[in-house]
Amino acid sequence: MVQSILDAISLGGLYSLAALGLGLVFGVMRLVNFAHAELITIAAYTLVLTAQFPLAVSLLFTVIVTVFVALLMEFSVYRRLRGVNPAIMLIASFGLSTVLQRVYELMFGALPRSAVVAPFLRGDFKVAGLSITISSIITIVLTIVILLAMGYLIEKTSLGLQLRAASADFKTARLLGVRSNRLISAAFGLSGVLAACVALILVIQNPQISPYYGLNITILSLVGIVIGGIASLRGAALGGFIVGVVLSSLNTLLGNGRVYAYSWLFILVLVILLVRPGGLLSKGSELERV
């Protein structure tokens, strides 16, 4: 029971990190970056392929590689699509996602790559007679730390202020001097850092990396940011958290019926969207044209 609650919270936290990465980029350029999945995947590959080095080195290397790929996406594709209909951008990101999946397949093979990352985080310990996995605790702690850091960055720094302003009204923000290219690159860079964090947590739990490794969590986080309210980063994080908690709880509660957990989750999503089309944290009923 305690373990189930911890699992739900840790999955929720993980999804909110992924959702935050998507939300940052969406905010500044109205792009739903489906290829965020491939950022998580490349981070996971890097972690596994550098597992022989000390964790800190491996992590640093992972962040560098992931941020590099994120910026590469921005420079090579998305920069040229700015201002285009968001639907077209979304479809382009689908295309980019496929390209990267196949590139990973050519580079790393279709079969999963695996290595033991941070073995000291495996296993479980006992508290008051209850057995609790270390990874669930680590996940929760890591998530809280990362969310607090992101919260500070977004609420208290100049970059965060510019990100919030640009998310609300990019045109006016530019009139005030917000440099569009730099800010969008920064958003992509940050989403890369977040993808690396997500990958770290995922890899501790499941170190079998295939070219589609990041797909599932990205799709579900996308669902999350929409139900949370895509207009705000808080909404994105909240939505991701809800999806994670609901999915984890469904898996526990449904027993043998857990193969249908996704169906129940999606039905819940539909209900939430029908009641609040703009997401849980939206104000009023703005018509958003995406």
Binding site: L90, L222, V226, I227, I230, I267, V269, L270, G279
Partner: peptide, 25 residues
Amino acid sequence: IFLMRLNGLAAGIATFALLGVAYNV
């Protein structure tokens, strides 16, 4: 009747949910 009340990205995700349910079932 339900989906067509939605606009924009919400509609996109809602239609995806439809596919998700059909596939899952």
